[in-house]
Amino acid sequence: MNGRKLTLFTVFCAAFLSLCSYTYGGERINVVTTTTDLADIVKVVGGDKIKVVSLSTGSQDIHSVDPRPSMVIQLKKADMLVKMGMDLDMWVDGLISAARNPRVIYSAKGYVDASIGVERLEVPKGKIDASMGDIHIYGNPHYQTNPANAIPITKNVLDGLCRIAPRDSEYFKHNRDEYLKKLEEKMVIWDREMAKFRGSNIVTYHNSWPYFANRFGLNIVDHIEPKPGIPPSPAHLSKLINVMRAKKVRVILVEPYFPLKGCQIIAEKTGAKILIFPPSVGGVKGIDTFLELFEYNVNQLVKALSE
């Protein structure tokens, strides 16, 4: 290839790539979220002004999602990123660097930490280290398990969308208000259904449910994991069986991605019922929205505690 052909080829390649980049533009705001819960909430607030994609699925353990190069491309195209924060979805930080998209880097207008304004539980005091298991320095990060936390989450999403498209602010505010009205109605029903079980003792696999328990007045007596992220030993399971018998625990909440083996042994010995309790939208088939998620979880818990 001579010099002239080479330069023409270079121009052709650049023009082609330029054209490809041109197709990125569009009418709607591209939003990327780290979880399916956030994706559903963004969809509600953003309406038809946005396109949203979640980097994880509802059946994944959000602590440890494998970053993939294809996720980089989603972030590269994004106008806004919404993450859980509180160091829960730290795997996205490397992807943000790899995407080189100034619109969604830390402190950019399109960077939204959904945890701002959430009343945080279990914020550690004093020295923390790995001997305590997988502890998060800002507190327990599973705040999405309290439906009321949709209020600060939608507020953060709204602020982000208004920063990016202020001319559509009223539209976004209207969508949020309508959603919160629906949520309020649902929460009244859920609170009423759960009221008779206030003070009930439960056991959970991972420490994912303090916000849920706090909301509905449940008492988490222990976890299958002896410490967050640490697999159970036979000695721990044996101790747990005694505790559950003593405290008359009737249900064990297990996220869909944890092994059932240890739980089944405990359930057999104590008579407790195992509930597959998805913490996120899409955690079980047919649960496609944040409201459906609570509907599903509350219903199965009410049924189990009523038996």
Binding site: G85, D93, A108, I116
Partner: peptide, 8 residues
Amino acid sequence: PAAPQGMR
């Protein structure tokens, strides 16, 4: 408005 800094 400016973006909040978030926690990390």
